[in-house]
Design a binder for these strands. Structure first.
Length: 424
RNA sequence: GGAGAGAUGGCUGAGUGGCCGAAAGCGAUCGCCUGCUAAGCGAUUGUACGCCCCUAAAAGGUGUACCGCGGGUUCAAAUCCCGCUCUCUCCGCCA
């Protein structure tokens, strides 16, 4: 959520920024609501002030056993007016709030303006794409041949976009989770957290999934709970409505969680394999930082995600998302894309974002400056480290052998009982 | 699932419808005192949103709201009434 005061004072800049993001937003409505709110507020506060003063007088009169009935009658009218104005104020504030909650974040000045993912800016690439003496297979074929991925059974149990892992497939997924967690905890200094996998409406609003993107979420029927689409939601909301001490920043958290996404509107896209699932596992890094360090922290966060792929020996490239691809809450996002030979393409495996104070303002996460004692919003960042299912895809496709077996990268072997190869 | 108790500032904890943004204590900050430390003394000690002042911000002045959340009664609600959420205790059930 943008700062209303900032919005009021920089309306033309915000107009321009939103136009660059391809957002058609009716800021005139905002201006009208905003001034309407202030008009009502001034009026109602004046009346309240009168009521407070006169009520005191009434109290004094009653103490002296004097007649206060004229004043009481007058205040009765004033109270009725206040009630009416309060109702109007509430409606106006709800409208205003509803409006501000649907305005995306302002992109950082370094973000390029674009119209599609074609316009994302290449930042760097790493690693060698493997060369095969045979036609590399897609992971779904490799996984089914090795009997470690069972898409038909997954669909039987739950439906399309659910997968059953078996044997070393399950072990690979589980080993990757622990490998990634240990790397971020031990080498990168993150604190592990394990959260609820459902979150309430306030939390979903805090990180920006609601109110605008309800159709992407699974909701628990009859209760105001949602399955989390990413650990970003519970981990960022750890400090919702809290004021942290400056000396405790930055906070680095890493969490494993399953992620649940309705994937509405993605029919026909990535229908085969593990790329786009209703449920997948992810290791997520979340940072709470001071405003002045958040962009340095974004670089480090992205490097932490890339490190996983380096350790696994998988080629990748890192792109800075252009305005067309940038997520609703993000000011700047780097996507790390792993090379996937079976698809002859780089595919997103991590997304690292700086939200600046956008989520912090929604979720009211603040910190107190040690020097001045002033309270201000902190900055939140997060990034996948990594999407586990897609990492399985990358391993299967990059390390597939002519005989159909798959080698396990050395760094990962301790996490799957020392096994160095998956064979039938 | 059944029965009961509770929710007040950074923390503990008072609070008879009006003098309660809220006692007291603790903690914290600043100052005094002191050879140093401790003790003692004094002052300060929330957040949000308006308005005034100001080129702007800050500071300052002023107003309003906030005692778990949402309604209601009343001239006036931390206080009375209703609903909800959460916490705790006991019983039952359960991984």
């Amino acid at each position: 959520m943008l700062d209303i005061k900032y919005l009021r004072q920089n309306i033309e800049l915000v107009r321009k920024k939103m136009a660059e993001r391809g957002q058609a937003i009716d800021f005139d409505r905002f201006i009208a609501l905003d001034s309407q709110r202030r008009d009502i507020l001034m009026e109602v506060e004046t009346l309240r002030n009168e009521r407070n003063n006169v009520s005191k007088e009434i109290g004094d009169l009653k103490k002296k056993k004097a007649d206060a009935s004229a004043l009481i009658a007058k205040m009765s009218d004033v109270s009725a007016q206040i009630k009416e104005l309060d109702d109007r104020l509430r409606v106006t504030e709800e409208d205003l709030n509803g409006f501000v909650l649907t305005v995306p974040n302002i992109q950082h000045d370094s973000v390029t303006i674009g119209s599609s993912s074609e316009d994302n800016q290449l930042i760097r690439s790493w690693g060698e794409k493997p060369v095969f003496s045979f036609e590399p297979k897609a992971h779904w074929e490799i996984g089914e041949n090795l009997n470690i991925l069972d898409f038909a059974r997954g669909a039987k149990i739950a439906g399309a976009r659910f997968t059953l892992y078996r044997g070393l497939g399950a072990a690979l997924e589980r080993g990757l989770i622990n490998f990634m967690l240990d790397l971020h905890i031990v080498d990168h200094g993150y604190t592990e957290v394990l959260t609820p996998f459902m979150a309430n409406r306030e939390s979903m609003t805090g990180t920006g999934q609601l109110p605008k993107f309800a159709e992407d979420l699974f909701k628990i029927e009859g209760m105001d709970y949602f399955l989390i689409p990413t650990a970003e939601v519970p981990v960022t909301n750890i400090f919702r409505d809290e004021i942290l001490e400056e000396k405790n920043l930055p906070v680095y958290h890493v969490a494993y969680s399953p992620c649940f996404r309705a994937e509405a509107g993605s029919y026909g896209k990535d229908t085969r394999g593990l790329i786009r699932q209703h449920q997948f596992n992810k290791v997520e890094m979340v940072k709470f930082t001071k405003p002045e360090t958040s962009y340095d922290e974004l670089e480090k966060l992205t490097a932490n995600a890339e490190e996983v792929l380096k350790k696994l020996g998988i080629a990748y490239r890192t792109v800075s998302l252009c305005t067309a691809d940038l997520g609703f809450s993000s000011a700047k996002t780097y996507d790390v894309e792993a090379w996937m030979p079976g698809q002859n393409a780089y595919r997103e495996i991590s997304s690292c974002s700086n939200f600046e104070d956008f989520q912090a303002r929604r979720a009211s996460i603040r910190f107190r400056r040690a020097e001045s004692g002033k309270v201000e919003f902190l900055h939140t960042l997060n990034g996948s480290g990594l999407a586990v299912g897609r990492t399985v895809v990358a391993i299967l496709e990059n390390y597939q052998q002519a005989d159909g077996s798959v080698l396990i990268p050395q760094a990962l072997q301790p996490y799957i009982r020392g096994i160095d190869r998956i064979t039938l």
